[in-house]
Amino acid sequence: MNIIGIESYLIIGLVLFLIGLFTAISRKNIIGIFMGIELILNSSALNFAAFSRFSARSLEGQLFSIFIIVIAAAEAAIALALLLSIYRRFGDIDADKLDSMKG
């Protein structure tokens, strides 16, 4: 068994995904949550690249990863803008305090 194989990548990707999910749920800081989302996206990109190399043997997976990275960047830009407006209004970026709408 080769250690640089599909299994290693799958496990790394899975760990990244789950830690990202965990971070996104447990953090109070919106930026922290967003870091979790970035981890999730990274894990998917890694998975795509790995599958592209080991499983499909075509470059389409890599291309998918590139697009994921680009979208992630765009999402980060929007997140920053919204974050600033939240900060202006609430003076805080605690996700738990954003609960004026409920029920």
Partner: peptide, 25 residues
Amino acid sequence: LLYGGIASGVMLYGLSLLYGITGAL
């Protein structure tokens, strides 16, 4: 944004598995 980001991240992970299974997009 946050919910959408996480949901689409989860979807992406699923898509990557699907890609891994079929090897095609």
